[in-house]
Design a protein around this nucleic acid. Structure first.
Lengths: 181, 181
DNA sequence: ATCCCCATGTAATTTGTTACATGATTGA
DNA sequence: TCAATCATGTAACAAATTACATGGGGAT
């Protein structure tokens, strides 16, 4: 499932512009599927070319025309087919963890800085999830609630693990070695 | 931190061939940093060209020469610099979660299949982590232990969340709607 | 017999990221 | 006055995946 298919899925829920879709990618999808304009606009063009969505251009003054996309029957069918994929992937790519693998080459200050930035990120996600919960998440389809709950659970587990285990990182660091040597 | 830098970090721990590094990517790094030969071999060539690693070719019969790479002083310094990055990323890209967002368009059987494949994946990771713990993880540097513990904690949290919340997915699915309609 | 391990690499393709390019309206 | 929101898109670049290409040795 690539950006194109996710856009198609979002459009199945109702018409939207590329700009609108970007906002979904920044809020409800942010914790597991990133996409910028550089992916979204080409995806929509390609979807339109394939006849999976229709595009209505709405003239506006002082702004580029707003292009509203609507899913077609063929698009809906295509989406249903895409959802038949029996083993969709779930991948983590973490420069953070890669860095922590080499904590013994870092100073305690460097490690602390990295940890702080991670926790800041975690807190941003937590407040995002909190906002979802307090703004009518109850009415979302079960799948979306599952996915957001998933993100929240993972994020909480991450914060808890870091709090409880960061002490492992500052044993035998670059600084502690030079202090000892 | 890209594949090149991670390779450099692995080599800081001791000399190795591309084939050896691949095994690290498949075991200890598997849960957060994927890399195949198509990334590793070009990374090593580029590292050697930049003088960050040395390469010794060991002739072998019936096999391609084994190329053993060793980090240089310049390479070690480069690694130390790379580790100064204060806010390394941690990204999730999940076709699994993207699929689950649209669970209301799927049959309960389809959902069940997807969930099963995810749990199978989780169990593979869990047995991997278990193997680490029973084969001398105690002597690893603190950073590596932190990272593996992190992976284990996340994986456990994921399994727990799925078990406790999958019921959310099968409410109002494609099949339950047609049964009702 | 058959499969896995060892061992290297290239080339084509696919994908996504980042920077560029433009500019009016609205609220603080 | 300044920042954010709205609104689109392209082009260059970076990166990773996949398939291709080769082939002996050892275990079951």
């Amino acid at each position: 499932m690539d950006v194109k298919t996710v856009c198609l899925g979002m459009l199945d829920d109702g018409e939207a512009s590329g700009y609108d879709l970007k906002k979904h990618f920044e809020s409800t999808f942010a914790h597991f599927f990133a996409a910028g304009y550089g992916s979204i606009y080409p995806a929509l063009s390609s979807l339109a070319e394939a006849g999976l969505v229709d595009c209505e251009e709405i003239p506006q003054e002082g702004k580029p025309d707003r292009k509203v996309y609507r899913i077609t029957d063929a698009g809906h069918q295509h989406l249903l087919d895409a959802l038949k994929q029996p083993a969709p992937s779930h991948k983590v790519r973490s420069e953070f963890l890669a860095t922590m693998c080499f904590a013994h080459l870092m100073t305690p200050e460097q490690i602390e800085t990295v940890l702080e930035s991670r926790v800041k990120d975690i807190d941003r996600y937590m407040s995002m999830f909190h906002e979802f919960e307090t703004t009518g998440m109850e009415e979302w389809p079960g799948g979306m609630r599952f996915v957001c709950g998933f993100g929240k659970a993972m994020t909480e587990a991450m914060r808890k693990y870091i709090e409880e285990n960061k002490h492992m990182l500052t044993q035998q660091t670059a600084a502690s070695r030079s202090a000892a040597g």
